[in-house]
Design a protein around this nucleic acid. Structure first.
Length: 596
RNA sequence: GGCCCGCUAGCUCAACUGAAUAGAGCAUUUGACUACGGAUCAAAAGGUUACAGGUUUGAAUCCUGUGCGGGUCACCA
C-alpha cells in the first residue's frame, strides 16, 4: 500500500467517524507536500467542505486530529489554508525504507496477462536511417520495455517497406550507373550504397526532365515521360510479375540494405521479435474489402475501385482498392491488423508512427470498427512529432537530413574527447574505454530524445545534446558511477551494507526521508508512464532522483560516518538510489556504467 | 477551405486525474575546492502559461472564440 492510498483509506474512515458520511475515495486527493511546508503528504480538503460544512482550516484540523489519535503511523499534522499536511512517524519511514531495500524486483509491476504488440521503425529500403527514424526507434523500443515492466507480454515488430517504386529507382540507377559496385568492393555500408543510387536516380531524372522541357515538352508531361522513371515503373511491373532477373536484383540490393540496418539497429541497441516485409503482406486485406462490400459498408464505383465513405464521421472518402483491383496502404494495414490479432491473440496493438499519419490511423481504426472487430479500439497510434534542426526542417532533397550513422559516430567522438579531457579513465583498457564511450554517447542521445513528450515537435541541437551537463543522460550515468565508487570503497573496507543491516536506531534526516519518498514513487511512476506510453516521465523521474542524490551527497559524509548504524543506513540508501536509477534508465535503453 | 496537433523564462524542456508562490537545465551574474569522484553544489536574476471570454471555492490544465505555427485531406507508402 502506498502512503497515498493509506491516507485516502484512513481519511475516509475519519470522515465517516466525524461527519457520518461515506465518501467516494475518488474525491480525495493526496499529493507530496511541497518543500516549503512541513509534512510528508498533503490531503486537499476543499472537496470535503460540502460534507464538513465548516471552514477549510477547521475541516483540515479535525481530520488531522482524528488521524493523529487513531493512526500510530501518523506522527503530526498541520493545516495551511485548505491543505492538510501529514507527517509520518520515524518508525513508519524505517519500515518503508526496509521494504524498498528488500524488494529485488522493485518497480516491476505484477503480470497483467495482456499481450501487446508494438510496431516501430518501419523503414523504407531505398535509403539509410536518419534522425527521424532514431526518434521512432528509441521511442518504440522504450515503450515496449515500459509496457513489459508494467507486467505485459510484449512483442516488438518491424514492418519493412521493401517493395514499391522507390526501391526500383535505386535498382535502375545501380544497373545503369553502378558498374557492379557492391558494399564489399566499395567499402560502403549497404544501406548507404543503395541510398546513394537513390540520390543518383533523382539527379538523372531531373536532368532528363530538364532536357525534355528544353526540347519543348511541358513540365508535367516531361515529369511523366522521363525515360528513367519509365524504366523504374517497368521494373516495378516486372517485379510484380515475378521476373527472375528483377527479383534477383531486388533481393541482392535489399540484402545490402538489411545488413546496413542491422548494424545501425545494433549500434542503437534496439531489436525486434519479428520482422514483417511488405512484399509478403501487401496483398492482404482484400478479403476484408470483400466482406465490407457484402455488408454494404463499402461501395464499388463504375471503374471498379472500392471506397469507404466516412463523410458522416466528419472525414473524407477513403480508397481501399484501385480500379485495377490492386490494394493500397490502407488495405494492407486492415489485413495485417486482423492477421496479427488473430495469430497472437493481442489485447493491444501499438503503432509507433510519425504524426503525419494521424489521419491514416484515425481512418484505420474507424474502418476496423465498421467491419465489426471488437478490438478496433485496442489499436493505438503512438504518434510522435517531427525532429527539427536549429537551421530549420530536415529535407532530404536539400541534403539537410542528419544521417543516423553519422550522428552516432559524432556522438561517440564527442564522448571520447570529453572523457579524455577529464582524464579519469586512464586506467581502463582500450576496449573498456571504447565500451564506455559507446555507453555515454548513446546515453546522451537516448536521454535527449526520450525526455521530450513524444507528441511534441522537438528541436534537436547537436551541440546541446552533446553537452554533458544539466538534465542529460551522462549526468545520470555519472551519478551512478559515483555511487558505485562509494560502494566499492565500502566493500574494500569491509563495511556491511545489506538491507538486513538496517537498524531503526539510525535516525533518518529530512533529506533522507525525501529520497525515500522519491524512491517509493517509482512503481507508480512506472504505471503512470505505461498508461501514457511516455518514457519521458521516467526520464524526468530519474533526473529528479539523481539530482536529489547529488545534493545529499554534497553535504552528507557517508564513509566518514562513525556510527555503524547510520553508516549502514546511508550506504543502503545510496545503493538503492543506484538500483532505481539503473532500473529507470534501463526502460530508456540506457546503460549505467560502473565507473566513468 | 475541412479535420487533427502544438503555443509555458532569452533558448531547450517539465508540471499525474483542475489545487498552495507554474518548475528544471542551458546561457547570464555571484559564491563554494583539506575532492568518500567539481562531469558537483549553493545563490541571484529571468513568467500576464499566445490572446479574449466562460465554467469552478480554485484553470497552464476543462469549454467557446481569435491569432500564430505545423500536419493532413492521392487509384503514394
Amino acid at each position: 500500500m502506498t502512503p497515498e492510498t493509506f491516507i485516502i483509506a484512513k481519511a475516509s474512515e475519519a470522515i465517516q467517524a466525524l461527519y457520518g458520511v461515506q465518501i467516494d475515495p475518488a474525491t480525495l486527493q493526496v499529493q507530496v507536500t511541497r518543500k516549503e511546508f512541513e509534512g510528508d503528504y498533503t490531503l486537499v480538503v476543499f472537496p470535503l467542505l460540502k460534507v464538513s460544512k465548516a471552514a477549510p482550516e477547521a475541516t483540515g484540523n479535525a481530520i488531522g486530529e482524528w488521524l493523529r489519535t487513531n493512526c500510530p503511523e501518523i506522527a503530526s499534522y498541520n493545516t495551511v489554508k485548505g491543505f492538510l499536511n501529514i507527517s509520518f512517524s520515524a518508525a513508519w519511514w524505517h519500515g518503508l525504507f526496509a521494504e524498498i531495500a528488500g524488494a529485488e524486483d522493485f518497480g516491476q509491476l505484477p503480470p497483467t496477462g495482456k499481450t501487446i504488440m508494438v510496431e516501430y521503425s518501419s523503414p523504407n529500403t531505398n535509403k539509410p536511417l536518419h534522425l527521424g527514424h532514431i526518434r521512432n526507434n528509441l521511442l518504440g523500443w522504450s515503450v515496449a520495455k515500459l509496457l513489459q515492466v508494467n507486467g505485459n507480454k510484449v512483442m516488438k515488430v518491424n514492418l519493412v517497406n521493401d517493395r514499391g517504386i522507390h526501391i526500383c529507382k535505386s535498382m535502375y540507377a545501380w544497373k545503369v550507373l553502378g558498374n557492379g559496385e557492391t558494399p564489399q568492393s566499395s567499402g560502403k555500408k549497404g544501406d548507404h550504397l543503395v541510398g546513394d543510387y537513390y540520390v543518383a536516380f533523382n539527379n538523372l531524372y531531373k536532368k532528363e526532365v530538364d532536357e525534355l522541357i528544353a526540347g519543348g515538352m511541358s513540365k508535367e508531361e516531361a515529369e511523366k515521360n522521363a525515360p528513367s522513371l519509365k524504366a523504374a515503373q517497368e521494373m516495378l511491373f516486372k517485379w510484380e510479375q515475378g521476373d527472375p532477373e528483377v527479383v534477383e536484383l531486388w533481393k541482392t540490393m535489399n540484402g545490402w540494405v538489411y545488413d546496413g540496418f542491422d548494424k545501425t539497429y545494433k549500434d542503437l541497441g534496439i531489436n525486434f521479435d519479428r520482422t514483417y516485409y511488405e512484399s509478403q503482406t501487401y496483398l492482404s486485406g482484400k478479403a476484408l474489402v470483400q466482406k465490407g462490400l457484402e455488408a454494404g459498408i463499402f461501395e464499388r464505383q463504375e471503374d471498379g475501385s472500392v471506397w469507404c465513405d466516412l463523410t458522416s464521421d466528419g472525414l473524407d472518402r477513403k480508397l481501399l482498392l484501385r480500379g485495377d483491383g490492386t490494394s493500397v496502404y490502407m488495405t494492407q494495414d486492415l489485413g495485417t491488423a486482423e492477421q496479427r490479432f488473430n495469430e497472437y491473440n493481442l489485447d493491444e496493438h501499438i503503432y509507433v508512427v510519425g504524426n503525419e499519419q494521424n489521419y491514416h490511423f484515425q481512418v484505420l481504426k474507424l474502418i476496423l470498427g465498421k467491419l465489426g472487430f471488437d478490438w478496433a479500439d485496442s489499436i493505438y497510434h503512438l504518434s510522435y512529432g517531427m525532429v527539427e534542426l536549429p537551421e530549420g526542417k530536415m529535407k532530404s532533397r536539400e541534403g539537410t537530413v542528419v544521417d543516423a550513422d553519422d550522428l552516432l559516430a559524432a556522438m561517440y567522438e564527442t564522448a571520447k574527447e570529453t572523457s579524455m579531457e577529464l582524464g579519469k579513465i586512464d586506467n581502463l583498457s582500450a576496449s573498456e574505454q571504447d565500451e564506455l564511450f559507446r555507453m555515454i554517447s548513446l546515453g546522451a542521445l537516448k536521454y535527449f530524445i526520450l525526455k521530450v513528450d513524444p507528441k511534441k515537435t522537438m528541436l534537436f541541437d547537436p551541440k546541446e545534446s552533446i553537452d554533458f551537463n544539466g538534465n542529460t543522460g551522462p549526468f545520470i550515468q555519472y551519478t551512478h558511477a559515483r555511487i558505485k565508487s562509494i560502494l566499492r570503497k565500502a566493500d574494500e573496507q569491509g563495511i556491511a551494507h545489506s538491507a538486513s543491516d538496517l537498524s531503526s536506531e539510525a535516525e533518518l534526516s529530512p533529506k533522507e526521508i525525501r529520497i525515500i519518498k522519491i524512491l517509493n514513487t517509482f512503481p507508480s511512476k512506472v504505471a503512470e508512464a505505461g498508461a501514457a506510453f511516455s518514457p519521458a516521465l521516467i526520464a524526468n523521474y530519474a533526473y529528479e532522483l539523481a539530482k536529489e542524490f547529488n545534493q545529499y551527497y554534497h553535504d552528507t559524509p557517508i564513509l566518514r560516518e562513525e556510527n555503524k548504524a547510520v553508516l549502514a543506513c546511508r550506504l543502503v540508501l545510496v545503493e538503492n538510489i543506484a538500483k532505481v536509477l539503473s532500473k529507470a534508465m534501463s526502460i530508456l535503453g540506457i546503460i549505467l556504467p560502473e565507473r566513468m
